[in-house]
């Protein structure tokens, strides 16, 4: 019961912070291109505007799945982003462990995939095939790199335990162990693929397949899908910061700093990681083809297995 209350209290916070993250990302991206860019609260305007538009469902679509999947995708993304935030509030017990968070993130991508392809458009069918290929290539290194962390902190996958381990250790995972450093590199390199930004935004390429899976969505469903993507980005960067670079641990425990100060520090850290892994690649790289992206992500697989082996050995 308490868990449900905390989670539902976190939902508006996740909503506001993830849309703010998207706004800051767009503003920085525009400034790097010598433009002025939209105001930072532009995603809020977009959300409200899209809810005011009419939504058309094509005749060839399986309308039940088409309508349900944006709602499910947005819900699972928001919960996946809310669990790490809520875990700071309760020191007792665990609201959810890493398996749940990563499953919800993957489920939101699968919901987008299924909903997009259920609209009967040939572009969406191509987007579906591409997204399946991408998911196969980036989900596996992502999972394995997180598992090697869990092995270090006493064979437990609970999110709280990993953070407590860093606090007891007095320093962050990425600085302490070489296996965790390799796992960090793998995780950070998988973030552009999981977030769907250039160079890996192949399933939703604007110029090739005219937005692929999102092509038949409009109005409130498009707003929910964009919210799902923003929440996924926020969840990934927040996870990356707290799992690998939990800086408050260096300041010797959370008794001296308040809960809100630690939360603000983690959000700021997630912002820095978002700048490095989402905004900068979006600006300076071109889009890859699906065969090239698949080969690139397969390079990450040996790296993640290496980090797993090193953590078992004890380094």
């Amino acid at each position: 019961m308490f868990i449900l209350m905390v989670l539902s209290a976190m939902c508006p916070v996740v909503f506001i912070i993830s849309l703010l993250f998207e706004g800051i990302d767009r503003k920085l991206h525009a400034r790097m291109q010598k433009r002025i860019g939209p105001p930072i609260i532009q995603p809020f305007y977009d959300f409200v505007k899209l809810f005011g538009k009419e939504s058309l469902i094509p005749v060839t679509a399986a309308s039940g799945i088409n309508i349900a999947s944006p709602i499910l995708a947005a819900a699972s993304s928001i919960i996946a982003a809310g669990i790490p935030l809520a875990s700071f509030a309760t020191t007792a017990g665990a609201i959810g462990d890493l398996i749940l968070i990563l499953f919800l993130l993957a489920a939101s991508s699968i919901m987008i995939m299924v909903g997009g392809s259920s609209s009967g458009n040939p572009f969406a069918a191509i987007g579906f095939a591409r997204k399946m290929t991408m998911m196969v290539s980036y989900e596996v290194p992502l999972f394995i790199s997180v598992v090697s962390l869990a092995i270090k902190s006493g064979f437990s996958l609970a999110y709280n335990d990993i953070i407590q381990f860093q606090i007891q250790l007095g320093s962050c995972f990425a600085f302490a162990f070489p296996s965790a450093a390799i796992a960090m590199i793998t995780f950070l390199t998988c973030i552009p693929a999981a977030a769907g930004v250039v160079p890996f935004d192949i399933p939703e390429a604007k110029t090739e397949v005219a937005h692929g899976l999102l092509i038949e969505y409009g109005g409130p469903y498009l707003a929910l899908l964009k919210l799902a993507k923003s929440a996924t980005n926020f969840a990934l960067t927040f996870l990356a910061f707290t799992l690998f670079f939990y800086l408050p641990a260096i300041f010797k425990g959370n008794s001296s700093l308040g809960y809100w100060a630690i939360l603000a520090l983690c959000v700021a850290g997630a912002l820095v990681i978002m700048f490095l892994t989402i905004t900068v690649p979006r600006t300076i790289f071109a889009r890859l083809k699906i065969g090239q992206a698949f080969k690139f992500n397969l390079v990450l697989l040996p790296l993640s297995i290496l980090s797993l082996v090193l953590s078992i050995v004890g380094m």
């Binding site: 400034r31 790097m32 291109q33 010598k34 433009r35 002025i36 860019g37 900068v280 600006t283 300076i284």
Partner: peptide, 14 residues
């Protein structure tokens, strides 16, 4: 990368 990064601090063209 270098050009894009320094453009963050210069006056925009628009």
């Amino acid at each position: 990368l270098r050009d894009a990064f320094w453009s963050l601090f210069k006056k925009p063209a628009t």
